[in-house]
């Protein structure tokens, strides 16, 4: 039986702010292990999305992609994602392209999917998180906990904004009940 929620953390832990999503995934994993609905979640970590990751979307109630992004300066953006054609690349797929591929592979309509972008600026090999990314991570964590506490598409849609739009602090705070396990 598949867990109803799939969370993909995209990034390379060795490349500066690209480690933001894996770091957030670590927190989520620890929180789920201690006080969250662990059985409802399956967590994936990837350097980049590959065509095979479409198979991990099958049978889910909802999916979340977390990634570092230069487009979101020191903040957090959260939006619903739709399948989009024409974004195909060989080495890595954007979430929208993965959702598009899902349909083309004959798997039916993909599950509702959302993207959380963590503000990032530096991606050099061997570097740690920048201060800006650390700050963005702290803002992302309560939002993620809120999402994990109410992992339903309709609840997530209520928090989602448009592409690149940051999630205001006052929309994050009310769902920031769980404490960080760090």
């Amino acid at each position: 039986m598949k867990a109803p929620v799939a969370v993909f953390a995209i990034g390379n832990r060795s490349r500066g702010d690209d480690a933001a999503a894996p770091a957030l995934l670590d927190r989520l994993q620890a929180w789920l292990a201690s006080e969250g609905p662990r059985q409802d979640f399956e967590l994936f970590e990837a350097y980049q999305l590959q065509p095979e990751d479409a198979l991990d979307l099958a049978g889910r109630r909802v999916a979340l992609f977390i990634d570092a992004s230069r487009a979101v300066n020191a903040g957090v953006a959260f939006r619903e994602e739709a399948p989009r054609a024409g974004l195909a690349a060989t080495h890595a797929l954007a979430p929208a392209a993965l959702l598009d591929l899902y349909g083309k592979l004959g798997l039916g309509p993909p599950p509702p999917a959302f993207v959380m972008e963590i503000g990032a600026s530096r991606f050099e090999l061997g570097e740690g998180l920048s201060r800006e990314a650390e700050a963005a991570l702290e803002r992302a964590w309560p939002l993620l906990c809120g999402l994990a506490s109410a992992a339903r598409p309709e609840a997530w849609r209520a928090l989602a904004g448009g592409e690149g739009s940051q999630v205001p602090a006052d929309r994050v705070a009310p769902v920031a009940a769980p404490r960080s396990p760090r």
Binding site: P51, E52, A88, A89, L101, K104, L105
Partner: peptide, 19 residues
Amino acid sequence: RNIVGVAQAHPETARRGVL
């Protein structure tokens, strides 16, 4: 000329490749 293009034109071939 990519796997998504193959999935569009030859879905079963692409599906098997992915699986």
